[in-house]
Amino acid sequence: PDSPLARWTKSLRSLLADQDGAHLFRTFLERERCEDALDFWFACNGFRQMDLQDAKTRRVARAIYKRYVEGRGVVAEHLRAATRACIRESVKKQRIELRMFDQAQTEIEGGLEESAYRAFLTSDIYLDYV
């Protein structure tokens, strides 16, 4: 009952907490060309663990913004305009906070949960593994 597979079907979060689960889900997303959504989700988690005193943190915030928020990728497409604007302001004004991507992460997580996660659980990638 507490096998990894049982956990994967419990929730998106429990799937992502498992190394094999996260890896398999990313393979599925690659096929759908939306693996950026997952990378962004992990980047937000990693960013929250950083140290504001570290000069690296500011550069990572800018890198996340440039890679996922500012362009026309799958993440930017799924974020609310207000959320993107808010992050843009923070980066431009160098108001870096560890929770500055939280809202965006919530929006992306919601999108993953509603579509990709459900599709994953009925995909051949998942079924073959099972």
């Binding site: 992502l16 907490a17 498992d18 190394q19 689960g21 996260a22 990378d39 992990f42 980047a43 937000c44 988690n45 990693g46 960013f47 663990q49 950083m50 690296k56 550069r59 990572v60 800018r62 890198a63 996340i64 440039k66 890679r67």
Partner: peptide
């Protein structure tokens, strides 16, 4: 000095689940 891409990759990897 690390490129921003490297820093981003490092940030993503740090949050990935580790083998139990």
């Amino acid at each position: 000095i690390d490129s921003e891409d490297d820093l981003l990759q490092e940030c993503i990897s740090s949050a990935m689940p580790k083998k139990k």
